[in-house]
Design a protein around this nucleic acid. Structure first.
Length: 966
RNA sequence: GCGAGGGUUGCCCAGCCAGGCCAAAGGCGUCGGACUUAAGAUCCGAUAUCGAAGGAUUUCGUGGGUUCGAAUCCCACCCCUCGCACCA
């Protein structure tokens, strides 16, 4: 080995060897397989630190499983479908200054190349080469024979096949969906087009159609169940209302809404025509029919009604809505004769429809009274509304007045009621922003229903049921994410799956549309199996027919007929099919946590829709993001750190080690210069240790006679081996590196300090294999220098060996270390310079007391009384009668509070403390730098300060004589 | 608002599910020492507070509670991060 650690030389050497020996290009064999996939990167830039983390995690898992004897397949492809690459090409073509700067400086694209990347195709061609280069230079054990790009014509054939099969199953449907829309640009607005209201979301309201003669006065609500408690409507006398002809699905109605609401309606999936203005007075004081209950309710004037919210007409539920209650109460004494209202409004009875534990019959009235809210203007009214709403939503159930819905929890009722109300034509859905949205052009945006859109029917209950079933059978890593996945499955609605713009595959049954890019990346893991044959030239594009994919991926159809139809030889067809059945399903899909609510969900949905249960994925893992010195990364605006630049600067192994050890699993990692600099030193230390051990030429193994410190080293190492394996199995790379590196290196240091050297070679042999998944190049280099001929990448991963556990050796070292620490502490506190240190090991009677305590403990009845009694029964112990109670009173609580184990080991092995300390006295003398004398407290030859009486088992008494000041 | 995660000793962070040698692992930083002509690297030690004998005291977002015993269990509250879609 070289004197100095030169990462790049070592890494280039081993990458070349791996590539030439093809050890990461697996073929089916008799071993158990492990198929791991990471979502392929989207190529609108170079791979960055976030990719580095996710892909390195995948590589470590792949390498670990491979060393455990599995046949591991870790493939990779490139995702390019969708709009961002098109957008990037436009920005480069127009020489957008920020884009040019970020891509040249941060993505590291040479200044003479960047301007040439002015079409999507050129961008894809450039980045797929760069990305593969980057992944090779960090040493991923990827089978590159299977790479592909999502615009490959062959991949498109695969996507077409998939969508045809989904459509046949009725999982792709046509419909409308709401989008944020700018009426001026006549276009959907995306987040970066928005001037104000980026935070706004589209909220689904239910319009309840109250009727007056032949007119409909719709009221928008988020809580359709409250329709059962409506006592009146609110109309603002100062607002302009219009009558409109509204046609939907061939059905014509005449609606009265505010002018603003009319405008919003024109963008919905309704035909809307203006008929005439309606003075507010005309619709105040009228009696309307509640379409749900059939009750007659009156419309009343209210200034709080905002014309821009909902329809500009509000339904009033004073039993449950504090504002409604307050507004109604305010009118009790008002003179409303100008609206022709002469009724005594205090006669209006509140209608209760929700039972909630915290409140009585009328929660709104109750809270207004207990909080002492005077009027609608009182700010506490807002708070009261929130409280009532929350309590009712979470804990409320519907009362008998709601008929067949009685007993339903409020939190579950909205979707059911909306569906039923629409079916009965008493309600409709209506979308509105949670806050106003303004386009960059200055125009207020609206919610527009895009018609004739293609959807993946994710809301389909049977489909969801299958996904739940799949999730139930899967391992989710970490386990806390299971509930997150389940929530998201529940929440997922139909998803638009086709767009007009971008790169991608045309929808086979409606060629005007392109398949949306999240929808074309759901089951592509199976395409890796086919891709190998395509890359090799065994398959032509014409051969990729529907029946070809049916046969190879589903096992459907007749092999001979498929061979006949496609011209693929039966032997090849069988080979592809058997490759598929060998590798599939995916054993582990590991990804950044940003993909949980989208890609990973769709991955599950499409697998369960298309494949039989035995091909459903086995496990899912998620990891956190990476920030740079506390700042979020952004591909397009920076900052960004590319994989290539990290590896160029620090080397592959150091980068891998750092990114995996800096944060655990779902926690976000922060890339800091001080952190990676320290990782560099750690790896360097490992290299230096290995070099010294190899150069020393000592090769003893565990076959030779072992000293206590050797047995200690072996025993400690077993624990780290076990913990590392457990951690890697649950993808806790930080924990794994903590055990396999940091804790182990500290013990090796202690081993050497204690004079251990016989087993250094053996330790290194195990250690280097333990570290190989994390720092594979360096480990290959050391492994080779140790004389091994086969690559460490294929060597056996260390496994926990119970036979090498030596509790006695561990306890003995604990005694030595503890004694040393105590002596040092005394010296520090007293600030003395020691002349001589005297150690007294525990007297035999105390050891006997411990033995006795262990016996009683085993019987399960240890307490102070029984132990004293048992000891006093022994005539030998009688003469210590005065000291026994005091010692026992201290000892028993220690047993109770977790200290039992070490005493049991001590008692069980019958450790001889005096002999142990004498063996270590040379070491202790060297450390403390003064002579040491060891006695038994039973008969100390020298004990001027009577310290020996403090001696306890595993805790020798100490007396230090200070050097006299000259 | 809804959902998820988090608040630990100078910093990053482990511990919490299975309460007890937990003043709390590991790393970083800082300070002191060894080595060196020197620097770096490496090694040793310290790093809540107090302490001239290995000890004592106060800590784990805040306030309560359960328990012989709480960073860990229960309740309430405060604060932070992320997601809420048709976009990869």
């Amino acid at each position: 080995m070289e004197q100095d650690y030169r990462p790049h030389d070592i890494e280039t050497k081993w990458q070349k060897k791996w590539n030439e020996s093809r050890i990461f290009e697996p073929e089916p064999d008799s071993r158990e397989k492990f198929f791991i996939t990471i979502p392929y990167p989207y190529l609108n830039g170079n791979l960055h630190a976030g990719h580095t983390r996710t892909f390195t995690i995948g590589d470590v898992v792949a390498r670990h499983k491979r060393m455990l004897g599995k046949n591991v397949l870790y493939p990779m492809g490139f995702h390019v479908t969708g709009t961002p690459i098109v957008g990037l090409a436009e920005l480069i073509a127009s020489r957008d200054p920020q884009t040019m700067d970020v891509y040249e400086r941060l993505h590291g694209i040479p200044g003479d190349i960047l301007p040439t990347l002015d079409t999507p195709e050129k961008i894809v061609d450039y980045f797929k080469v760069e990305s593969e280069k980057a992944m090779r230079m960090i040493g991923y054990s990827i089978d590159w024979r299977r790479k592909f790009t999502t615009t490959d014509p062959t991949y498109k054939k695969f996507i077409e096949w998939q969508y045809i099969r989904l459509e046949e199953k009725g999982l792709i449907v046509k419909g409308s969906h709401p989008v944020k829309w700018c009426p001026n640009d006549n276009n959907p607005v995306e987040d970066h087009d928005i001037l104000h209201g980026e935070e706004a979301t589209i909220v689904e309201f239910t319009l309840i159609k109250f009727r007056y003669k032949d007119l409909v006065l719709p009221c928008a609500t988020l809580r359709p169940e409250t329709t059962y408690g409506v006592t009146n409507l609110w109309v603002n006398p100062k607002v302009d209302y219009v009558k409109a002809r509204v046609e939907k699905d061939g059905k014509v109605e005449f609606w009265v809404v505010s002018k603003e609401a009319f405008r919003k309606l024109t963008f919905t999936d309704r035909e809307v025509e203006y008929v005439e203005d309606v003075p507010a007075k005309d619709i105040i004081g009228i009696m309307l029919t509640n379409p749900v209950t059939g009750d007659e309710v009156i419309s009343l004037p209210a200034s709080f009604v905002k014309p821009g919210n909902g329809s500009g007409i509000v339904m009033s539920v004073p039993a449950h809505a504090p504002f409604d209650y307050l507004a109604l109460r305010d009118l009790y004494d008002a003179d409303l004769s100008e609206y022709g209202i002469t009724e005594d409004l205090s006669e209006i009875k509140l209608i209760s429809l929700i039972k909630v534990p915290e409140f009585g019959e009328f929660p709104a009235k109750e809270i207004v009274e207990t909080m002492g809210i005077a009027s609608q203007a009182d700010p506490k009214a807002e708070e009261a509304t929130k409280i009532v709403y929350r309590r009712e939503f979470h804990g409320g159930v519907l009362k008998e007045i709601t008929g067949k819905y009685t007993g339903y929890p409020v939190s579950k009722i909205k979707d059911i009621l909306t569906r039923d109300f629409i079916a009965e034509n008493v309600g409709e859905t209506f979308y509105e922003f949670s806050e106003p949205v303004v386009c960059r052009c200055g125009t207020p945006c609206v919610v527009n229903m895009v018609k004739g859109q293609w959807f993946l029917n994710y809301s389909n209950p049977e489909w969801k049921e299958k996904v739940y079933k799949c999730l139930n059978q899967m391992r989710i890593i970490p386990a806390e994410y299971r509930v997150e996945f389940e929530n998201k499955v529940d929440w997922l609605k139909d998803k638009a799956c086709a767009r007009r713009k971008g790169l991608g595959t045309r929808l086979p049954f409606d060629k005007e549309w392109l398949i949306e890019s999240l929808g074309d990346s759901t089951i592509y893991m199976c395409y890796y199996i086919v891709a190998k044959f395509i890359q090799k030239g065994d398959l032509t594009i014409d051969q990729l027919t529907l029946s070809f994919f049916d046969y190879v991926l589903f096992g459907k159809g007749d092999a001979a007929a498929v061979a006949e139809e496609t011209g693929v030889t039966p032997a090849l067809l069988e080979e592809i099919r058997s490759d598929f059945t060998y590798w599939y399903p995916v054993d582990l899909r590991s990804s950044g946590k940003d993909l949980v609510p989208n890609h990973l969900l769709f991955f599950l949905f499409h697998h369960v829709a298309l494949f039989d249960e035995d091909k459903w994925p086995g496990s899912l893992a998620v990891n956190g993001f990476v920030s740079l010195e506390g700042q979020k990364m952004s591909k397009s605006k920076g900052p960004i750190l590319t994989l290539e630049s990290a590896v160029s600067e620090y080397g592959a192994d150091i980068t891998r080690m750092y990114i995996l050890s800096t944060a655990e699993q779902t926690q976000d990692a922060d890339w800091q210069k001080t952190g990676i600099d320290s990782a560099r030193r750690q790896v360097d230390r490992f290299y230096a240790f290995a070099r010294d051990v190899i150069e020393s030429g000592k090769r003893a193994t565990i076959g030779t006679e072992l000293k206590q410190i050797d047995r200690w080293m072996l025993s400690r190492m077993q624990n780290y081996i076990r913990e590392t394996n457990v951690a890697l199995d649950s993808i806790q790379t930080r924990e794994a590196i903590q055990n396999s590196f940091f804790l182990l290196i500290n013990d090796v240091r202690w081993y050497q300090r204690r004079g251990g050297e016989a087993l250094l070679y053996y330790v290194l042999d195990t250690w280097v294999r333990l570290m190989a998944p994390f720092t594979p190049h360096l480990c290959e280099e050391i492994w080779e220098a140790m004389g091994h001929e086969d690559p460490i990448s294929l060597a056996q991963y260390p496994l926990y060996n119970d036979d090498l556990i030596d509790e006695g050796a561990e306890l003995a070292e604990e005694l030595v270390k503890g004694t040393l620490d105590d002596v040092e502490e005394i010296i520090r506190v007293t600030k003395m310079t020691p002349q001589k240190v005297h150690l007294y090991t525990a007297p035999a009677w105390k050891t006997e007391a411990i033995n006795c305590a262990c016996t009683i403990q085993a019987e399960g009845s240890l307490d102070v009384g029984t132990l004293i009694k048992a000891l006093m029964a022994n005539p030998e112990m009688k003469r210590f009668g005065k000291e026994i109670p005091k010692f026992v009173q201290k000892l028993v609580p220690e047993f109770k509070s977790g200290g039992a184990e070490r005493y049991e080991t001590f008692a069980g092995l019958g450790l001889d403390e005096e002999a142990l300390l004498k063996e270590s006295s040379a070491f202790l003398e060297k450390e403390i730098d003064c002579p040491i004398e060891i006695y038994s407290a039973d008969s100390p030859a020298y004990d001027p300060e009577k310290k020996s009486r403090f001696a306890e088992p595993l805790r020798p008494a100490i007396y230090i004589e200070a050097k006299k000041e000259e």
